[in-house]
Design a protein around this nucleic acid. Structure first.
Length: 420
DNA sequence: TCTGGGGTCCTAGGACCC
DNA sequence: TCTGGGGTCCTAGGACCC
């Protein structure tokens, strides 16, 4: 019998900011996405004011000022570090853990006799050691654990931070599921929810009771599996070893639009270096390198240039990847447009060691492999971007806007919080 | 001034081939 | 009126997630 817990940090980014700004306890906080584009996190007080997640910030900037909302740019150095600490604490409480995103993880609780007590111990431990409030949902499948987590935060009467489906009888379970909109189910997004509602499946309970074959035929095997998971069948297992990605993307909007090929070159070089690092981290090599540049889709000249450059041999060498990426950039670049975003994608990934031997190819140069290893280890030790490609240029004037970023309290010596 | 994130996987449909 | 297939590869766009 499987038992999963889904633990996540409440309003994680906002909570991280608050750890270092106790004066903001009980105050509305909003955290923006990269480039100060959208709202990606809001404290409970800000949510109560009605801020929509993922809405463009400029539309609500006035409202924030009016209500005295404290606004932060994303500070991923801080959130990433707090995340590592939170995950390490949670890992101590269970035999295996799958880190699912920066602020949430699944834990395997099979065989735990008192899951409720364990859940409350975990909350207490994280809160005491790093000051982040977390919520815990428990159920016999990952989908039910996710849904339980939602209940533990948002369903009146059950919203004290821990919820376990095993507390309820089958009849009570169905009664509660009948109150949960189908869109709250993990894997059912906006579009799928709309289509399901058209078919009169508007609650989690109705999805649970839908005919599996009908779901498979009219929607997908994925949705059929989701419904099975709602019925308590565990179809998705805990993946405690990270699965290798099938594609790797690095892309970013510019702080200011640019028409300059040199700026795009610097940005694409930066992205390919980052993507190459991620590629080597998972031990893969790529055969295809995609390059994408685009102007604002909301402006007068919406343009999305995209091309794929094949490599003769799969590679994990940043220099080889960069050659392909910059060739691709020259192919999609159009003079005179003001670009808003550039990025690269690595595709057709294969395990590095299984790379096909080619009689006519030169053997991979061991010195280049050593160079890549050295590059990665320097950047991991001394900070990303410590050593970079010449084409990344020394002044990266394409960097994102971060007008209101907080200090990197936990990862930058000069930005430590000093108590006087 | 003028503003709209980033990443991963899936799939429908087109091109091409026999 | 209906009627001419099926497999593979590729990719743009869709859908989901946080």
């Amino acid at each position: 019998m499987s038992v999963f817990a889904l633990v996540d940090g409440n309003n994680f980014y906002a909570s991280c900011e608050r750890v270092f700004r106790p004066d903001l306890t009980d105050k509305p906080i909003v955290v923006l996405s990269n480039n100060d584009g959208c709202v990606v996190a809001a404290s409970a007080e800000a949510k109560a004011l009605g801020f929509q997640m993922f809405g463009p910030y400029f539309e609500i900037a006035g409202l924030c000022r009016k209500h005295g909302v404290t606004v932060f740019s994303s500070n991923y150095a801080l959130y990433g570090d707090m995340s590592r600490r939170m995950m390490a604490i949670l890992a101590q409480h269970a035999p295996s853990q799958e880190v699912y995103s920066i602020d949430e993880c699944f834990l395997d609780l099979a065989g735990v006799s008192d899951t409720d007590a364990l859940a409350r111990r975990m909350r207490e431990d994280v809160w005491r050691r790093i000051g982040i409030p977390v919520s815990v949902g428990i159920g016999p499948s990952k989908t039910l654990a996710k849904l339980a987590n939602h209940v533990s935060k948002r369903v009146e009467g059950w919203d004290d931070g821990v919820f376990d489906w095993s507390w309820l009888s089958p009849a009570e379970t169905d009664a509660l599921m009948a109150r949960l909109p189908v869109g709250k189910v993990w894997g059912v997004g906006r579009r799928l929810a709309a289509k399901l509602i058209d078919e009169h499946i508007d609650t989690a309970l109705k999805l649970k009771r839908a005919d599996p074959r009908w779901l498979q035929r009219n929607f997908s095997v994925t949705l059929e599996r989701t419904a099975a998971e709602l019925n308590g069948a565990s179809c998705l297992s805990l993946e405690d070893a990270a699965q290798p990605r099938q594609q790797i993307i690095s892309s970013r909007s510019f702080g200011e639009k640019t028409a300059d090929l040199a700026v795009l070159t610097a940005a694409v070089s930066h992205h390919i270096a980052r993507a190459g690092e991620k590629l080597r981290e998972q031990g893969s090599a790529a055969r295809l390198v995609g390059v994408s540049v685009r102007t604002s889709p909301f402006g007068d000249d919406p343009y999305h240039g995209y091309t794929v450059v094949p490599l003769v041999h799969p590679s994990d060498d940043t220099m080889a990847l960069a050659g392909a990426a910059l060739a691709g950039l020259r192919a999609v670049y159009r003079r005179g447009l003001r670009y808003q975003k550039a990025g690269v994608v690595l595709m057709e990934l294969s395990p590095r060691e299984r790379r096909q031997a080619d009689l006519f190819a030169a053997a991979p140069d061991p010195r280049r492999q050593r160079l890549m290893r050295t590059l990665d280890s320097i950047n991991q030790t001394y900070g990303h971007g410590c050593v970079k490609l010449a084409s990344e240029a020394l002044t990266p004037n394409w960097e994102m806007r971060q007008d209101v970023r907080s200090p990197r309290y936990t990862t930058q010596l000069s930005e430590l919080l000093l108590i006087r």
